[in-house]
């Protein structure tokens, strides 16, 4: 080391600030718009915003820690083969306090922001039978029934119509009621930013406002047995005229069996199952 010790702290702070000034705008402006799950619905778009905020908050922290360790690994390395002893610093009350205060502030901000974002409309997540963040305005209820190994969909406002494909009208607030007939599944409409577990005997509500007409992927996100890997289909968001036509067509097609369908209910308990018979 040179006779006048370099000011390591200032250098690390400088490098951290430079790195943060470069990477944080990149994270916000370049990476942010590409963060999942896209803009397929109001909830999905809100999640993209949320993910962008988290990324932007964490980028400078990542810069600090990575710059620090890279600097330390290079500058504080031992050059010779002799064992040399380092400094005897054992702690620093000011640094520790500053660290605790700043990390606490960041955590409280993140928790507060996440809660605020969640309370808007529930962020497309499964909210249980009585949603804390409820829909604002009129909704189209759609029931999602998971069973091994497919999803079926019921439209209670259209006579309990049950279909094997999910079609939703554009620019409509949809209230999914997710339930299961057997194992636990998870209804994941990726592009809509919706995920809600399907539990037997439970009604799990998720709210989403659809955007423009598009298709979206539906997958099961909770392992549910043999063909879990194939429990996927594609849904459609269509304009309201097409939706009305589609519903009418489905009702006509299923008219012969409509009478023998079980009435619409929030949950459907299968016959008591016992393993050992």
């Amino acid at each position: 080391m040179s006779s006048s010790p370099p000011r390591h702290g200032r250098r690390i702070a400088l490098y951290t600030i430079i790195a943060s000034l470069i990477t944080t705008p990149l994270a916000a402006l370049v990476l942010g718009p590409h963060l999942p799950p896209g803009h397929g619905s109001r909830e999905a778009a809100a999640q993209v915003t949320d993910n962008t905020v988290l990324t932007v908050v964490m980028t400078p922290i990542a810069c600090l820690v990575l710059v620090y360790f890279a600097y330390a690994a290079i500058v504080f390395r031992q050059r010779g083969t002799e064992i040399e002893e380092g400094a005897t610093t054992r702690g620093h009350a000011g640094i520790q306090t500053a660290w605790i205060v700043s990390t606490t502030a960041i955590v409280l901000f993140l928790a507060g922001y996440g809660t605020w974002a969640l309370l808007q409309t529930g962020s497309g997540s499964g909210q249980g039978p009585v949603p804390m963040a409820s829909a604002d305005g009129a909704v189209l209820p759609v029931q999602v029934i998971g069973q091994q190994w497919e999803f079926t969909y019921r439209y209670p406002t259209y006579g309990g119509l049950e279909t094997s494909t999910l079609v939703l009208p554009a620019h409509t607030q949809v209230e999914f009621h997710v339930t299961s007939l057997d194992a636990i599944h998870s209804f994941w409409a990726y592009d809509l930013g919706v995920k809600a577990d399907a539990n037997p005997g439970a009604d799990n509500v998720a709210i989403v406002r659809t955007g423009d007409a598009r298709s979206f992927d539906v997958r099961c996100a909770e392992v549910c047995g043999l063909w879990h890997g194939y429990m996927a289909d594609t849904g459609q968001v269509v304009d309201s005229a097409s939706f009305a036509t589609w519903v009418a067509g489905q009702r006509k097609a299923f008219a012969p069996i409509a009478g023998s369908m079980p009435p619409y209910r929030p949950t459907y308990q299968p016959d008591p199952q016992r393993r050992a018979g």
Partner: peptide, 29 residues
């Protein structure tokens, strides 16, 4: 959500102590 994020505080202590320990050390690889 809050309790989960709070866990990053004590986890952060470990990182701070690691950072403090390498500070002006003679690191052997």
């Amino acid at each position: 959500m809050l309790s989960t994020e709070l866990i990053s505080l004590p986890t952060g202590f470990t990182f701070l102590c690691a950072m403090g320990t390498v500070w002006r050390g003679r690191i052997r690889y």
